[in-house]
Design a binder for these strands. Structure first.
Lengths: 242, 242
DNA sequence: GGTTCGGCTTAACCATTGTTATCCTGCATC
DNA sequence: GATGCAGGATAACAATGGTTAAGCCGAACC
């Protein structure tokens, strides 16, 4: 199949594409696939031969710990994200990508990316940009981990996910579907599942959120962003010439 | 001046360069500058016009927190690191780069990088790679933050820095100069300075390290890597075709 | 050589987070 | 509708980390 519009919109939100560039992107062929919750989308391997884009649902990069059998989640991906594009230039991925809830993705072969990057420098810089935005999110997670306490830390994640989902049109009205268990949130934020539960209760009691099942609703956006000290600058949502 | 050898060696450690590519890199002109401890090397700004490479010493990316006047360090850089290359493709950097101890750097203009990336796709992918290795380090810091307790967490940082310094020839024999205060370590790991001190004492009492002033010596490499669950895979020190 | 200062060290006490255990609820299954 | 089960909620207690305060030590300065 042809490359979906999602990623093209992700790029166009941040820079201008020429007609030729848009046509060149549309020439990319992809393989689409659906996954059930918990399925492995990308296995940890020595050298990857393709990378994947989210079409719907969410996925997570998980790092399995040597001893404790537990795992840490270092990234969450929403529709439009080029999940493991960094695998195109890296020797090996130290992580696995799994579906959080039902998810659809499309795979692009690295051969095609190599051809594209050999001839389209501006598009190459935009692909590169998408991996550096990922890194900016990593840094913000580090800042949040170092500076926020449990409730505020959880609140920061909720704010980020709403902002990212909203920016690709996958959420409105401060509501969204969050297909994560409290155990998963514990693996993201580095707390015990019980403590995540305490943080959820705290946010509820402050009147900031409503949360049942997989549906999250933010009741007080100014309040929760203030608690989380959330500033969306790092998501790089500006349009520029790159 | 011409681009220093440091970064070229960083690349050659990971992929092969043709003679033409090596010559093209040597054509890059740079501006060298020295900084004293604490100096701002790269100020947070809307659009950067150049990026910097470490020649000697260390630097840190700091994120200033809105309220608490405190700051978080999300990355440390050693000689050979292209510190803020991601600023070449990102709209704005959410952080400042400062010198940790005396440091020498060289600046490369984005105009030159744009010219280079317009014509040298393989070199572009290698520059891209260097930013994705940064991101891999960010992820490992997230894993460490989520899964390790204070002593092990500090130990992990000490192992990583030795490995990185050693890989560029800036440290041998499990010793190195670490121009960081305990306060800085607190800003990296997200603990209070007092708790960093407890962790240092713990590592000393376990006979894993000797540490006085800015000189760190790792006495028991197998012991400390086991405590920190340190596996250097994520630093991507393999040679491959990219 | 005394003074000052910043950073390291330690201790006592308090706050946050982890652990273990139990119960509740909703859903799937039969 | 009884059963089993997974995930969420809660409580009691233990461990980890933060805060405040004070002493120590070496380098820089006069």
């Amino acid at each position: 199949m042809a490359l979906s519009d999602y990623f093209i919109r992700f790029l166009e939100r941040r820079d201008k594409l020429s007609d030729e560039e848009r046509a060149r992107l549309a020439d990319i062929t992809t393989e689409r696939k659906s996954f059930a919750s918990g399925d492995v989308i990308v296995a940890r391997e020595v050298v990857a031969e393709r990378s994947c884009l989210m079409l719907s649902g969410m996925s997570a990069r998980i790092h399995v710990l040597p001893r404790s059998k537990d795992r840490v989640i270092t990234a969450l991906h929403v529709p439009g994200d080029f999940v493991d594009l960094h695998g195109f230039v890296l020797a090996g991925l130290a992580h696995t990508v799994i579906a959080m809830g039902p998810a659809e993705v499309e795979f692009v072969s690295h051969d095609q990316l190599r051809e594209l990057t050999n001839e389209w420098p501006h598009l190459t810089r935009l692909l590169w940009m998408s991996t550096t935005i990922d890194a900016a999110v990593h840094r913000q997670w580090l800042v949040a981990a170092a500076s926020l306490r449990s409730s505020a830390h959880l609140a920061h994640l909720l704010c980020e996910l709403y902002t990212r989902l909203n920016s690709v049109g996958a959420a409105q009205d401060h509501r969204y579907i969050l297909p994560l268990l409290q155990r998963d949130l514990a693996n993201i934020l580095g707390y015990s599942p019980i403590h995540i539960n305490r943080a959820v209760r705290d946010l509820r009691e402050r009147g900031l959120i409503r949360w049942s099942g997989t549906e999250v609703q933010i009741l007080d956006w100014p309040g929760i962003t203030a608690l989380a000290q959330f500033r969306p600058d790092y998501l790089d949502l500006e349009q520029l010439n790159r």
